[in-house]
Amino acid sequence: MVNELREAAGKLLDDGKVDLVIGWAKGSLPLASTPVFISSSDEADQLVFDSTCGNNLTVYFTKDNKKISRDRKKVGIFVKGCDSRSLVLNITEKQLKREDVTIIGVPCSGVIDTRKVRRKAEGREVLEYSQDGDTVTIKGKEFELSVPLEELLSNACLSCLRKDAEEYDLFIGEPRKFSGESDPYSDIEEYENLSADERWERMNEEYSKCIRCYACRNVCPSCYCNVCFVDQNDPQWIGKTPEITDTMIFHIIRNLHIAGRCVECGACERACPMDIRLLYLNRKVAKEVRERFGSDTGTDLDQKPAMADFREDENQDFIMG
């Protein structure tokens, strides 16, 4: 597959269809591949794709590198299922134009959470990581482990229903279609069934770990405000203290700001240095958005993002009777 991927990138560049391809390359550390920008076919052999390619490359269109799209460069980009949803969302949010980007889908079997790998390695340094189908081999100085991939996957990937891109120009291999769903939010429902006191306590416990480093925000493909609300001071709606009320409100508002925009890629959770189960809130919001507005983020180029839209006959069960 890697060969196909390199060939495809090379051909796009050679044919002049794109000036630049964004993809993944092997990183200096074994567990994390690194984003790479390829501008000629000679460099295409750097490209790789495996379960260490967690980075959502669409951030290069929205974050500080917005100029990539604003310079009207023609860009090719490799996407997993979640990445393609980001891309679609960003197009509906006018951050880039569909015609300016060549989307290359890659078949995704999930990306790993390095913490889970380290846990398996019981703290020993991992020097080599290789994947063969559903099995992963981890090697260190004095050990070698063979682990089913599933045990290492990021939480977000475990509940992922749309693994492959649905919007693409090329696809490496055969894309799997959205396969319907069982009950993707059963964990959220379980949590909902707890008492308010219990939920408050658990959330408190979880979020009191937060050190307000904003890694979750910085890595999020949907967070691209020039100045984040938390850094605004006219007014300073919420404090920057680590006091639980400030922390909690930060996370509540952050989740409202990505309502109908979160593609559930799990980047935030993987980036969190304090290991906070951030996805709980994301997925709760995503569940409401899907159930109430019938909107699946980033799956339809012609649909307005959920929070930029409304229907007159919407469920309003939360309004006092």
Binding site: E93, Q95, N226, Q232, D309
Partner: peptide, 13 residues
């Protein structure tokens, strides 16, 4: 202007 990211939600709404 310097804060606007041009996402066009305002326009839709």
């Amino acid at each position: 202007t310097d804060r606007c990211s041009g996402c066009s939600y305002c326009e839709s709404i």
